[in-house]
């Protein structure tokens, strides 16, 4: 059964097409990721799904309920963590949580089981004003507040943006625990490395979905031979590689350059020889499988 169904949703702001015929289904209990940069349309889509804004055309259903006709019912069963920190800065951590529990007509105690694992991490700071928390703690409080009415579907808009790698990792572990409790989770992120933590993903760019699939199927679809190339001087290396007649694309990936070759026949040795001729020392070339970021770049090139 689908928990979220999106059919041909489009939305423009003036001449800017924020969403262009989006089609997407998320299964019940699935952790689904919307992966894309700022301006891809992720937040606009979230706003429509949580009934805060209307699409220009198309329909969407959450747990079978229509986002326009049944918006009141939808608001009771979804939890939403907006991209911008939206809690009350001058209320304490505890007061914020208590407030969100009470506006949904419940208490913290009634719903404690679901938030317990996350709450214990911020409980030592429960009397601190929310505005005085660090980024990672704010994020945990916002998640508690989005969960305190036991939603069936959770919408998390860039929960890890601007958060350091350690806190990001902890956050994803929390999501795994929530999934075990049967909650459907739609989460957006600009970090490509988080894509593999989702069961399925949609890669978005400029209001369009470029691909929807499991992370492993998306990476398998990369159809050019890909090499990781290292040498001592990365900047000279990439410039030399860009001139290689078999080079389809070259991009920095941390300590190496990823070179996609035009033809299947290109070998690591051929690249290594070419670099040798051009005077690069300590060359390492290895054939590798594409990651999500390689695929995202390739899809952007194709659609541009």
């Amino acid at each position: 059964m689908n928990s979220i169904e999106i059919n041909n949703i489009s939305k423009s702001f003036g001449s800017k097409k924020a969403l262009q015929t989006i089609n997407l289904n998320v299964e019940a209990g699935e952790v689904f990721g919307l992966i894309g940069a700022d301006g891809a349309g992720k937040s606009t889509l979230f706003d429509i799904l949580v009934t805060l804004s209307k699409s220009d055309s198309g329909t969407a259903r959450i747990e079978g309920l229509d986002v326009e006709k049944d918006y009141k019912k939808i608001r009771k069963i979804v939890g939403y963590m907006p991209g911008r920190f939206s809690l009350y800065m001058d209320l304490t951590v505890y007061e914020n949580l208590d407030f969100f529990a009470s506006i949904f007509g419940g208490t913290i105690e009634d719903n404690y089981e679901l938030i317990k694992d996350i709450w214990v991490q911020i409980e030592p700071f429960k009397d601190r004003p929310a505005g005085k928390l660090s980024g990672g703690m704010k994020q945990k409080l916002a998640l508690c507040c989005a969960l305190v009415h036991q939603p069936r579907v959770l919408f998390l808009d860039e929960p890890t943006t601007g958060v350091d790698p350690v806190s990001r990792n902890e956050f994803w572990n929390m999501l795994k625990n929530l999934k075990r409790k049967g909650i459907t989770i739609l989460v957006s992120t600009p970090y490509m490395d988080e894509a593999i933590l989702c069961e399925r993903i949609a890669l978005m760019q400029e209001g369009k979905i470029m691909a929807i699939d499991t992370p492993s199927n998306i990476t398998k679809a990369f159809n050019k031979p890909l090499f990781s190339v290292k040498s001592t001087h990365q900047r000279k290396l990439i410039n030399t590689l860009r001139r290689f007649d078999q080079a389809y694309s070259c991009y920095f990936f941390g300590q190496s350059v990823h070179l996609a070759a035009k033809n299947e026949s290109v070998s690591a040795k051929e690249i290594s020889d070419y670099l040798n001729e051009n005077g690069h020392p300590e060359i390492q070339v290895a054939k590798i499988s594409a990651g999500i970021e390689d695929c995202f770049i390739e899809l952007m090139r194709k659609t541009a």
Binding site: D38, M192, R235, Y251
Partner: peptide, 20 residues
């Protein structure tokens, strides 16, 4: 200060070319 936050992977790399 986090100049590339929220930027797509190609633009992020082009930005580093400018930094270099």
């Amino acid at each position: 200060d986090e100049p590339t936050g929220g930027v797509d992977p190609i633009t992020r790399r082009q930005f580093w070319d400018l930094i270099y």
